[in-house]
Amino acid sequence: MRESWRWFGPNDPVTIDEIRQTGATDVVSALHTIPTGEVWDIDAIRRHKALIEECEPGLTPLTWSVVESIPVHEDIKLARPGHEKYVQNWITSMENLAKCGIKTICYNFMPVIDWTRTDLNFKLPSGAYALRFDQKKFAAFDLFILQRDNAEAEYSADEIDEAKAIFTDMSEEEKTKLTNNIIAGLPGKMTDSYGLDDFRNMLANYKDVSSDVLRKNLFAFLSSVLPQAEALGVKLAIHPDDPPRDMLGLPRIICTADDLNILFDALPSPSNGITLCVGTYSSRPDNDLPAMAKQFGPRIHFSHLRGVSRDPSEQRSFFEASHLDSDIDMIQVVKALLDEETRRSASNPDEQGIFIRPDHGHQMMGDIGKAVNPGYSGIGRMKGLAEVRGVIRALSALK
């Protein structure tokens, strides 16, 4: 497997030199300063690539191998008039990346917001901090802070009463913090932070967009992109919706194995693949991750190896667990990925392997109190990478 590490660019608190020290060989990155919908030109790509790959003699080189992500413009998701220019810009960016040797692209088709959490500093019994999604807090935000139109229809009477009690007990500071955690400037988000009125307006754009409509728009986008991806040898790896279920009145379409079967039945191109984000998929109890890793092995171009622990009394609530101590059997997932690599190498000895990276590590030890991108502190991810590396070495020795 190809061990990789996500880097958010020169402003990332974890530096390239520190990434080198983790033992990772590949870097996952993107041009975060380019507005969504604009072309990533070759000069900008080469400058970013040089920041990652150029190093002093004697140091271990790193390779920018995976893009996460080229954001998909909202006009494409909504199929608005004139959205074709943004599709073409996306294709041009893909072509320019391929010219620079970068041929694995993670992307998502989530409307309005990227991954969503209610707590960015949830204290664990160990004293470390994790990301958490609390369904009850989320309901309090949706119903009584955002006050989304017709939100009550999506909750039971008991859920509404419970959310109201949580909201009533919150201080103004806690309400502001919850709001910021949900809608303000998380890594990978396509805009800067914005206010509640802006957020309501963006949600309103999807008022009449069903899951079927959004899926149709995804398929139309991919129908335009995949032929060129195949010609370039580019692998596209769609990331699941996080959390993987409808929320805020927004449709979600990449949540389960059934969703992936629909995607690949419609668009069987070998360039059409997935990012197996173990943590995201496993936040639904009906997703069997070892089984999904086996079933979709040939489609896995990239994998985020992390897990979550769901609340036994409210399965929609979860926190980011240690990489080997979650609700899923990470060892069996890694075994399935190794088996897939063996299958690939049998037919193609030059197969480069599946790119993996540790994801959403705990903020711990010397990183506590430091400014970090939520979920992306250095020590916690290095711990996760070391754990996963140990599993890979042990399983590989048994082959």
Rank of each mutant, 00 (worst) to 15 (best):
R148V: 08
K189S: 14
V213T: 11
G195R: 13
P187M: 09
Q228G: 13
F144P: 04
I238Y: 01
S223C: 09
Y206I: 05
K189R: 13
S224W: 06
L214W: 00
D149T: 13
S211Y: 04
N201M: 14
I183S: 04
T191V: 10
M190F: 04
A157R: 15
A229Q: 01
F144V: 13
F219H: 15
V225E: 03
I160Y: 02
K164H: 13
A151M: 05
I145D: 00
A140D: 03
P240F: 06
P244K: 03
D208V: 06
E172K: 10
M190N: 04
Y206T: 02
L196T: 13
K177W: 00
S224V: 07
V234A: 02
L214S: 05
D149A: 09
L232E: 06
K164D: 12
I182R: 06
D242N: 12
I145P: 02
S210R: 09
K189M: 14
L214T: 01
Q135R: 00
E154K: 12
L232D: 06
A184I: 00
L236Y: 00
H239C: 07
V225Y: 01
K164P: 00
S223Y: 00
D169C: 08
D161A: 10
A163E: 03
S193R: 10
R215Y: 13
Q147D: 07
S193C: 08
N181D: 14
V225L: 06
K164N: 08
S210D: 09
A165S: 15
E174S: 14
N205V: 02
N150I: 04
P243L: 01
G185C: 10
K235N: 08
D208Q: 14
L186D: 00
M170N: 11
I160W: 03
E159G: 03
E173H: 10
N201V: 10
N150P: 02
S211V: 01
R148L: 09
M170K: 08
N205M: 15
A220H: 08
G185Y: 09
I183L: 15
E174R: 11
L178A: 01
M202Y: 05
P243A: 02
K216A: 12
G188N: 06
D169M: 11
S193E: 11
N181V: 12
I145W: 01
P187I: 06
G233F: 05
S211H: 02
L236M: 15
S224N: 12
F219V: 05
P240L: 10
V225K: 03
K189V: 03
L203K: 03
G188P: 02
A165R: 12
R245E: 12
L186A: 10
L232H: 04
F219E: 11
Y155F: 14
D161L: 13
F219K: 11
F219Y: 15
E230Q: 15
K207I: 00
S156G: 13
G188L: 03
L186V: 08
D169A: 13
D242K: 05
K175M: 12
A220N: 09
S171Y: 09
S193Y: 08
F167L: 11
D142Y: 01
K175L: 07
I183C: 13
F221P: 02
D161R: 10
P240I: 09
K136S: 07
K175A: 06
K189T: 04
K136N: 08
F167W: 15
E152F: 07
D208K: 15
K164Q: 12
Y194S: 15
K175C: 10
D169H: 13
M202V: 08
K164V: 01
D161M: 11
N201E: 11
